[in-house]
């Protein structure tokens, strides 16, 4: 309510270049990490190695679609790991009993939608903090998976379509990367050019203003969390295809890395700023970092320290500060 100052036309200039810088930063980080990888091992120059990393990055990247949306609306989804495992277990078993592709994929989508709705119930309807709520849902899903696997033994029968999507090749390019590219184009387009995208940014920028402007909050929350659930479920199926079986704990590596991918990708943890383009670079960065650390014989514990510290540093520098 202080003094009114006239708008300074010059200010838009630096702002614009700042946003370009912001979009370029994740790719710059990726380039640096890749260079480090090459220094660590010349293998990273071969297409064979790159291809392997690309498949891994595609899995993280697909999951990061939902995580990006959740973070853009100012929340987070930590129920991904056990959504992946539950889907892997359940869908492959169902497929073994009823060998039709659509059964497996239908089951996966069903699980994803259900998880998304439960997440939305807690976060939007009950207004529980999303970090705590989705972490609890993750525990719940872990419980359901354990109960389920106690009754049904895991199977190595995997739908061929899942296998193809995870391991297949289109010419010299992995099918997973193609799938990732298609999904990425859809998400980036949806965020930029649809009313839904506008609603996501509006909601993440200021929920009260969004409410006062007539943005349909419930619908947006539902779309975001259901997308996240479905993407996680889909990756669960792909991962079973990738290892030709589903196993307990197959989703364990998907708690922190998707969040790290989104944050490295330049989206603000408080919501409203960022996009999926950066998350693509983020997903590759995360995978390359992990691969490099493994190449350097860094233990799993030390890798966790590195990732936790990187995320903390990014949050401290500019991404997760408290809103005033």
């Amino acid at each position: 309510m202080s003094a009114a100052t006239e708008a300074q036309p010059g200010r838009a200039g630096p702002r614009l270049s700042a946003s370009i810088k912001r979009a370029a930063l994740p790719w710059l980080i990726l380039a640096v990490v890749y260079a480090l990888c090459v220094i660590a091992s010349a293998d990273f120059l071969t297409w064979h190695t790159i291809r392997l990393q690309l498949i891994q990055a595609a899995f993280i990247g697909l999951v990061a679609i939902g995580e990006t949306l959740a973070i853009l609306i100012g929340h987070i989804d930590l129920s991904i790991p056990w959504t992946i495992t539950l889907t892997g277990m359940f869908a492959t078993n169902l497929y073994a009993a009823h060998p039709h592709e659509w059964v497996a994929f239908g089951a996966a989508i069903g699980i994803g939608v259900a998880v998304g709705l439960v997440n939305m119930l807690g976060v939007y309807v009950l207004r529980v903090n999303s970090l705590i709520w989705t972490l609890s849902i993750n525990l719940m899903l872990q419980g359901i998976t354990l109960i389920y696997t106690n009754a049904a033994a895991p199977t190595t029968v995997v739908p061929p379509a899942a296998k193809f999507l995870a391991l297949g090749m289109v010419g010299d390019i992995p099918m997973a990367a193609v799938l990732w590219a298609v999904c990425a184009i859809i998400v980036i387009g949806a965020l930029r050019f649809t009313p839904f995208g506008r609603a996501v940014y509006a909601l993440g920028s200021n929920e009260l203003v969004a409410l006062l402007s007539g943005v349909r909050l419930a619908r947006t929350y539902a779309a975001v969390f259901i997308t996240s659930g479905v993407m996680a479920a889909l990756v669960g199926l792909l991962l079973s295809g990738y290892s030709s079986q589903a196993y307990l704990g197959m989703g364990d590596d998907y708690l922190l890395p998707p969040v790290a991918a989104v944050v490295i990708g330049g989206s603000r943890l408080a919501g409203g700023e960022g996009g999926y383009g950066g998350s693509i670079a983020g997903a590759m960065t995360v995978i390359l970092l992990e691969a490099m650390l493994i190449t350097l014989n860094v233990s799993q514990g030390e890798r966790e320290i590195v990732f936790g510290a990187i995320l903390l540093a990014l949050a401290f520098l500019f991404l997760g500060r408290r809103r005033r």
Binding site: A202, N206, G272, E273
Partner: peptide
Amino acid sequence: NMGGFMFLPIAHNIAVTILDRLR
């Protein structure tokens, strides 16, 4: 706190009420 999205473009701030009509 109640008026506008400070970090979003002016155009988005104005069009937020007519998202459905612009579809």
